[in-house]
Nucleic acid binder design. Structure first.
Lengths: 331, 331
DNA sequence: TTGAAAGCGCTAACAC
DNA sequence: GTGTTAGCGCTTTCAA
C-alpha cells in the first residue's frame, strides 16, 4: 500500500480511505489512487486488515460429508445468505473424521471467523476443538442442543408422512431399512413411521437393519427382502435415506421384482438422484437450502447479539419436511 | 498471547518459541506455557501470524459446481495431499457464475494463499480476477494452457473407449447425447467417438444435441429417441456425462424401452450414482481423486520453485480414463 | 534459555 | 480533504 500511495502521490491513510470511505476523498484523488492500484496490481492484505480491524467478515461451515448432495445444498443456502451480505464463507469437509472436524474448527477459530455452522459427526453434538464461548456455533441437521442454536427438520413427522403415504396406498406389511441406534435422525424417522403404523389395525413395521446409510446397504437389503417368500415379504419399504432407496431399487430390479408393482419404495431426503432414478423415487423432502440459510441467519443474529452485548438465547428451528410422491409408490 | 505470557510468568517471545520452536525452550517453561494456554483457552491469531510471517500455509480451490460429485472427489484428492503436509485448504464454489469465480479468486488472493487450484468456468481458461504473476494457479479438468500448469483427462481417448466398447458389442447406429461447441471436454469426447466410428464400416454416429449436461437433458433426449421408428433408432447412446446417462435411463424406462435390451447406454465420469442406477450404467472413469492430488502436487512444486527463485516451466498432466463396463451395455 | 523490541500492512483517530 | 501516526498480535532478531 505504501507503493500505491507513493505512486499516486498521497499518504497511505488516503489510499485506505479511498477504499473504505470513498466519499471522504476527492474524486480526482480517488481516481489517481485507483490508477495506481491498477498499475501496480496491488491486492489488499486481508491479514493486516483483519488484525487491525480486530475481526473478519467471514464465517465457516464444516460438514461431515461434502460428497453428499444433501450437504452441498445446505452449503449453497449458507452461501446465498452470506454473499448477499458481503460475508465470506469458509467451507470445510470433516469427511466423517472427528479429528479432522476438530482440526477444521480449530483453524477457523485461528482465522477469527465470526462464527461457524456445523453439521456435526456423531450422535452427540460434542463440539470439542472449538470454544463456543468464544466463537458462536450453530448446529445444522441436529436439534435441541443446550449450548447452541440449531436448525433441524422434524424427522418424526417425516417418518410419519412416509408411513402414512404407504398405508394410504393399501400397504400393510411395511419394512424400515436403516441403521438404528446411531443417528438421532434415523431413529426419529423410524419412530414416526412406527407411530403411523400403530394407528392402523392389521399393519406392521418390520426393521431391516443396515450397517450404514449408503447405496450398498440398500442393495443388500433388497437382496435379503427379495429372498423372502412373497406372502411374507413386505409390500413396501421405507428407507432411512435416499441412498438406501436407490440401492433398494437396483437390488429389486436385479432380483426381478417390479417397483412399485411387486414392492413399493419411499426414501428420505429427496436428493436430485431420487427423482432421476429409472423409477422415480418417492421421498420426504427436506428444505435443505432453507436449512442452510436459516442457520446462517441464526448465526448472524447471535453474532450481532454478542456484539451489542445483549444476552443471547439459543433457539432451535425445526423445519417441516414434506412428501414428494413419485412413481415408486404409485401402484 | 500477552495474557498467556503474563500468566506463565514469561515473555511473549518465549510463548511464541514454546509453540514454534519447542526445543529452544526449557521443558519446564514449556509446560507452564501450555498450562497457561489451556487455562485461558487462548487460540492463536492466524492473521497476526501471517502478517508477520509474510505468507500463509494455505491454498485455495475453486470449483464450478460443488453439487457435482465429480468436483467433490477432486476436492477430496486435494485435501488428502494438503492435510498430509499441514496445509490448509480453502474451498470455494463459483456455482457456474463468472462474477462469483472472480470474487472467490480475489478473496483468496487477499488472504494470501500460497496458490490456487481452479476448475474454471467456460471454454477459455481466462482467469480474470486473479493475477497469476502473483499467485500460482493450477487448472484442473482443462488442458494445455500457456499460463498455468494443468491437470486434465484425455477426453478424446475416453470418447474413443466408449464408442469402441459399443462397436465391440455389435452396435452400428450410435447416438452421442450432449452439448457441442460449449465445453472442450464434451467436444473431445464426441471427437474420440467419431474417430472410433469412422474406423468401422457401416457404422454411424448421430448427435443428439442437448441444451445442457444435466439429468433433464437426458430424459428429453430419451423421449426424442424413443419416438423414432425402431429400425431407424440408434441401438446405443453415448452420453457426454453420467447425468445425461441417468436421465436417458429414466426416459427409456418410462417409454417402455429396455436397457440394454432395446437400447444400450454408456455414460462418462463414473460418478457413484452411475453404478447405483437401477440398471448399473457403463461409464468412462476419470481418476478424480488423483486429478486433485496431482494438481495439488503441481501447485506445490510451482510454489517451491518460485520460493527458490527458480524458473518454473508450466506442465500439463494428461491422465488416462478407463472403461467401466456394467449392465447397461451388457447385451 | 529467556527477555526486549522492531516491524509485518493496514485502519482510524486526530491534526492540519 | 489529506497527512501523520499509534497500534492490532505475532515472529524473530539480538542482547543479556
Amino acid at each position: 500500500m505504501r507503493d500505491v500511495a507513493a505512486l499516486a502521490g498521497v499518504a497511505v491513510g488516503t489510499v485506505s480511505n479511498a477504499l473504505n470511505a470513498p466519499q471522504r476523498v476527492a474524486p480526482q484523488t480517488r481516481r489517481r489512487v485507483q490508477a495506481a492500484i491498477a498499475e501496480l496490481g496491488w491486492v489488499r492484505n486481508e491479514s493486516a486488515r483483519q488484525l487491525r480491524a480486530g475481526s473478519s467478515m467471514a464465517i465457516g461451515i464444516v460438514v461431515m460429508d461434502i460428497g453428499n448432495p444433501f450437504f452441498t445444498d445446505v452449503i449453497a443456502g449458507v452461501e446465498e445468505f452470506c454473499y448477499d451480505r458481503g460475508l465470506s464463507v469458509h467451507v470445510g469437509n470433516s469427511d466423517q473424521r472427528p479429528d479432522r472436524q476438530d482440526m477444521l474448527l480449530r483453524r477457523l477459530e485461528e482465522q477469527r471467523v465470526r462464527g461457524v455452522i456445523l453439521a456435526p459427526i456423531g450422535q452427540r453434538g460434542d463440539v470439542a476443538g472449538i470454544a463456543p464461548r468464544t466463537t458462536p456455533v450453530v448446529l445444522v441437521d441436529r436439534v435441541h442442543d443446550p449450548n447452541h442454536c440449531c436448525v433441524g427438520v422434524d424427522d418424526v413427522s417425516g417418518g410419519r408422512l412416509a408411513a402414512r403415504h404407504l398405508l394410504d396406498h393399501g400397504h400393510r406389511r411395511i419394512a424400515f431399512a436403516g441403521k438404528l441406534g446411531a443417528f438421532a435422525q434415523a431413529d426419529d424417522r423410524w419412530r414416526g413411521a412406527a407411530q403411523a403404523v400403530e394407528g392402523v389395525a392389521g399393519s406392521a413395521l418390520r426393521v431391516v437393519e443396515t450397517p450404514a446409510h449408503n447405496i450398498e446397504s440398500g442393495v443388500d437389503s433388497a437382496v435379503w427382502l427379495a429372498a423372502l417368500p412373497p406372502d411374507e415379504r413386505p409390500t413396501a419399504v421405507f428407507a432411512a435415506n435416499d441412498l438406501i432407496a436407490i440401492g433398494l431399487l437396483q437390488g429389486f430390479t436385479t432380483a426381478g421384482l417390479a417397483v412399485p408393482g411387486d414392492i413399493a419404495i419411499i426414501g428420505y431426503d429427496d436428493i436430485s438422484f431420487a427423482a432421476a432414478a429409472a423409477v422415480p423415487l418417492s421421498s420426504i423432502h427436506q428444505p435443505r437450502g432453507q436449512m442452510g440459510a436459516e442457520a446462517a441467519a441464526l448465526l448472524w443474529k447471535e453474532i450481532e447479539d454478542r456484539q451489542a452485548g445483549e444476552r443471547h438465547a439459543h433457539r432451535t428451528l425445526v423445519l417441516q419436511p414434506h412428501l414428494v410422491a413419485r412413481r415408486s409408490t404409485a401402484a
